[in-house]
Design a protein around this nucleic acid. Structure first.
Lengths: 244, 244
DNA sequence: AAGTGGTCTAGACCACCAT
DNA sequence: TGGTGGTCTAGACCACTTT
């Protein structure tokens, strides 16, 4: 029936068209997070393409982390849970691993300001467009481990200033309240030393090492919707990546 | 003919067995870097499996960066060129990007020492095993940007102390002289501040920010063969990664 | 037993490249 | 024109999960 999503005259391969169609259904909340999506056979019938092609699309989406599959059970919409991968690099002491803990946060303020050149560039706005600026300190077990400034486009996040953000993870809020799930991000790391202000907020000495992390977060449709700059305590920061 | 590589009674999927067989041929230099490997049809005949299964193996190897393919031409062994991805994060000034430049290096010494606990653990040796320890400073346009200590297992790299390593990239040497191409690496980043020694070597002030990068480099067979710790100038270090 | 995903086959047709 | 990879089909059989 519903073949409006697939265009057989289109030059684009069918399996990529199906990938887009599935992403669209997830991003429009037709298929919700954690939900089982139709089986290979059903998708094959619905879109009028072969099971083999459906398999190719689904394995691509699994590879991207959008879906996960369980043999004998089904295919499910993955949780775009960045909180785990985004804080996995913090530790305390020499060996303690707190990546399982949920960080707390204290909001220092949320303002509406002009984007300015830098923010405008990364969020694809003009420098005169208004953005929200959230300042907060994040904590693990009552210890501050990072301070951050977060910039959000005003239009998309209108009303966020009235929500209780204290001790909340932001990405679930973007997803639930603003239909804006975060799917991937660019991240830039630079070492730095704490200035007076940062040192006070993190409870460390001025001149102590900190990690500066700048991040641009994106939606399914690759729209940049958040820019943030964090300063993390050097003694609790260890970032692991695999290079291929 | 040559079906010794594929075991149809094995529980492991055929396409994964083929992936291993192909990696083995590359790592044993049977198929050299840049070489065109046999076509899908030839591989299908040689290993006695269907073309579809061969396609699955090859696309997996492409995804891992081991092979690359060109429609109408063939499938080729990719250059395991880590020099690019491993130095891509350096820059000078506010915007200059020197990732295209080849860094120079000054060797401070190459010693044979006992591995010790840390090195033994990551290189899968015992603490009494001997390893090479290379100390060097790396430069871009005559400016030192990092100092590093590099540890290599003695047995695999016997003779490296007699080679001219000055201003050379090490990974091509591992590959050419020791049949040890580096395929992937774990990398750990932490911010730090320069001590007196490091500051002098990098030409910066004591207490200035530096990035501490620890890396474990691996072969095709996932054998860890190098451990290094680098301290990079904070003002020229910017690390970019994409999180999914 | 019925439904799911995981593997595998044996083709087909096409676009691209070399000759 | 013949060989290559890229896409797509229409099955088959298996392992696993649920009913």
């Amino acid at each position: 029936m519903n073949r409006i999503d697939i265009d057989f005259k289109n030059e684009k391969p069918l399996y990529l068209q199906l990938v887009e169609a599935i992403k669209q259904r997830i991003s429009s909340n037709t298929w919700k997070i954690g939900m089982m999506i139709p089986s290979e056979n059903e998708l094959s019938r619905e879109f009028g393409i072969s099971v083999g092609t459906v398999k190719k699309s689904l394995s691509l989406l699994v590879q991207e982390g959008v879906l996960f599959r369980r043999q004998g059970k089904g295919t499910f919409v993955a949780t775009p849970d960045f909180s785990k991968s985004f804080t996995r690099f913090f530790r305390y002491g020499q060996s303690g691993d707190l990546s399982g803990d949920i960080p707390g946060s204290v909001i220092f303020g949320i303002d509406i300001v002009k984007a300015g050149a830098k923010v405008a560039e990364v969020l694809h706005l003009t420098a005169q467009d208004e953005v929200f600026c959230i300042k907060r300190v994040r904590t693990l077990q009552q210890i501050a481990f990072s301070v951050e400034e977060i910039y959000l486009p005003f239009e998309r996040f209108k009303g966020i200033e009235q929500l209780a953000l204290e001790n909340k993870l932001l990405y679930p809020i973007y997803s639930k309240n603003f239909s804006t799930p975060i799917i991937w991000a660019d991240e830039y790391l630079q070492p730095d030393v704490a200035d007076e202000m940062t040192a006070k907020e993190l409870g460390i000495n001025e001149g102590a090492p900190v990690m500066c992390v700048e991040r641009v977060a994106h939606t399914y449709e690759d729209i940049p919707v958040e820019w943030r700059r964090s300063y993390g305590r050097g003694d609790s920061f260890r970032y692991h990546i695999v290079i291929r």
